[in-house]
């Protein structure tokens, strides 16, 4: 699948943003005044910025509001609703933290639930696709959720949860890469079943239907950069989980240290998300004899 920069930015930033908002909403980092303004502001900026980035890849972004209509069937629509609900429900909680004033913790709790539901909905957009076997697997929602929680824990300075989540994230990334490599074969589609000619014999592409590229090839048969995937997998695991994890375990949590850990983690998350797209193979590639 084509790793569109806008989608990588959106999923990484909004994931970390909703993770941060969830931690703040649960009162994990009791902040007040200016500090609260900066942290809540960062959470909102990441979440909203990510949502805006997601509109960059639309063909007709001016109609984006229509995406709220099909929540009964579409995970993309549900993502829109969950994110709006989370951002609106948490506004009074954020204002209470910044300007002082008590709100019962249940307000934050409900907002946090919607933050996590947003992450679930985002991940299900990919998980639901049977056409992309690597995504159509439990590791996809697990990874999106763990990335969001790890990013949130790091950004809100939760040293112990962040350290634990970094370990979980590293293990999960290894599992997702390893198990994901087998998914396409397990899904059972091949050029024989795609054309139905497998019953006759071994099928080989003789001539393509068009000499230039088309939308399908640009969007779903992305092969650029896959040769570096082994190295990039190591980079993704080291930057997103191992280095931040070591920092949290062994370096005192000064704000600068937290900032450095956050930047390294986000960079690693971007690499992991790039791989998530670039390594995902769509079954339509079978018709073109490529994956």
């Amino acid at each position: 699948m084509h790793p569109a920069p806008s989608v990588i930015l959106f999923t990484v930033l909004s994931g970390a943003g909703f993770g941060l908002l969830a931690f703040l909403a649960l009162g994990a980092a009791p902040v007040y005044g200016l500090q609260a303004f900066l942290l809540w502001g960062l959470g909102y900026a990441l979440a909203v910025g990510g949502l805006l980035a997601s509109t960059f890849h639309l063909g007709n972004p001016q109609r984006a509001l229509r995406a709220f209509t099909q929540w009964r069937t579409s995970w993309l629509s549900r993502e829109g609703w969950a994110s709006m609900a989370a951002l609106l429900l948490l506004a009074p909680v954020a204002l209470a933290a910044i300007f002082g004033g008590g709100l019962p913790p249940v307000f934050g709790g409900i907002g946090a639930v919607f933050c996590l539901l947003t992450v679930v909905a985002t991940s299900m957009i990919y998980t639901q696709l049977r056409t992309v076997p690597r995504w159509n697997f439990w590791t996809t929602p697990a990874l999106f959720m763990t990335f969001a929680l790890t990013g949130g824990a790091i950004l809100s300075g939760q040293v112990v949860p962040a350290a634990i989540l970094c370990i979980v994230l590293a293990l999960l990334l290894v599992a997702a890469f390893r198990l994901g490599d087998r998914r396409f074969a397990d899904a059972g589609a091949d050029i024989g079943s795609a054309t139905g000619l497998g019953a006759v014999g071994a099928v080989r592409v003789l001539a393509p239907p068009h000499t230039g590229p088309n939308y399908l090839m640009k969007e779903m048969i992305h092969v650029v950069g896959r040769k570096h995937s082994a190295r990039l997998r190591q980079i993704a695991i080291v930057l997103s989980a191992v280095v931040p994890g070591l920092i949290f375990l062994f370096v005192p949590p000064f704000p600068v240290v937290l900032g450095v850990a956050a930047v390294i983690h986000i960079a690693g998350a971007m690499v992991a998300r790039w791989l998530f797209f670039a390594e995902a193979e769509h079954v339509v590639g079978l018709y073109y004899g490529r994956r």
């Binding site: 050029i191 054309t195 006759v200 014999g201 099928v203 080989r204 592409v205 393509p208 239907p209 018709y287």
Partner: peptide, 10 residues
């Protein structure tokens, strides 16, 4: 789109 395939029976 029209593809062309070569199928080799046993």
């Amino acid at each position: 789109r029209v593809h062309s395939y070569e199928v080799q029976p046993d």
